[in-house]
Design a protein around this nucleic acid. Structure first.
Lengths: 157, 157
DNA sequence: GGTGAAAAGATCATCCT
DNA sequence: AGGATGATCTTTTCACC
């Protein structure tokens, strides 16, 4: 993915859409000083260029009974490609893993995990860590508050 | 937020919408065995109940030139309510902070930060940490790979 | 929860600068 | 080339069953 030829208008449009993907083209146009049709065309381009990856519904974890969030730092036994790739696949397949980053430093992976309750998290640690001989160590932090739940990217340098 | 009265149909609808918020009611209806109008009505209810918090466009960090992602653990000087709240506000106001969790354990906050480059991250650490006497210590992990970038919540227990 | 008409929005071709 | 205008189709919305 390359060529980010984005002018101020594009940025303004993206800013609207990442706040609310259902904002109609007319409103966006009024805000940025463009006709509705022009806005639509730009949106189409932005979608095709992959700048807008997709449009999704953000669900309330609370409403779904997922009241607990954890941040888990995972350290692997040996950092072989096979081991890392295996864990990666496991992470992608597990619905309780909301996010996963492969990082430098002491830990190898940082996971954000949502669970219904502590029992759910225990079950998660079992299948994810204890049943996996490649996991050397993991450190759990319980999230007391989701201060910011990231979806919006900074559009201006 | 309460009332989680979600039947299988609701869950199926939510599953479609969190994958693609632009899925039209007709397609969803065909998939779950409901008329388009019925699907729309349920979606409206889910929105009003707050189960669907919002619908957003997911933008490509790469296309926006935000090639670097960091996971930062932050430890505050004193855990007074005023200090924590001040930092919270700072985090919410900073566009480079994609996510922030207030957690138990050694660290007080876990941040996911996106930046254009290392210089951008340095500027970030300055305004966020070095210029803040309440920050005792922070540990940075550079994300080499975003294995999973969380938007989908597990809908089935 | 289903059906059908009306309203709203997106899409496309065309013209304009 | 990029942006405005108007016809047309799709999708949502709402009354009613």
């Amino acid at each position: 993915m390359h060529t980010p030829d984005l002018d101020r208008l594009d940025v303004a449009i993206l800013s609207c859409l990442q706040a609310d993907a259902r904002t109609i083209a007319e409103s966006i146009g009024a805000k940025v000083g463009l006709s509705a049709a022009a806005v639509q065309r730009r949106i189409k381009r932005l979608r095709e260029a992959g700048v807008i990856e997709r449009e999704v519904a953000v669900l309330s974890p609370q409403a779904l009974g997922l009241t607990m969030t954890f941040v888990v730092m995972v350290e692997m036994e040996r950092e072989s490609l096979a081991v890392l790739d295996g864990f990666r696949r496991q992470v992608l397949a597990d619905d309780n893993v909301q996010q996963c980053y492969y990082v430098t430093g002491n830990a190898d992976f940082v996971l954000v995990v949502t669970c219904r309750d502590m029992a759910g998290f225990e079950a998660f640690t079992r299948r994810m860590f204890f049943d996996n001989p490649n996991v050397r160590h993991f450190t759990t932090s319980v999230a007391m508050d989701r201060v910011k739940t990231g979806l919006t990217l900074p559009l201006e340098p």
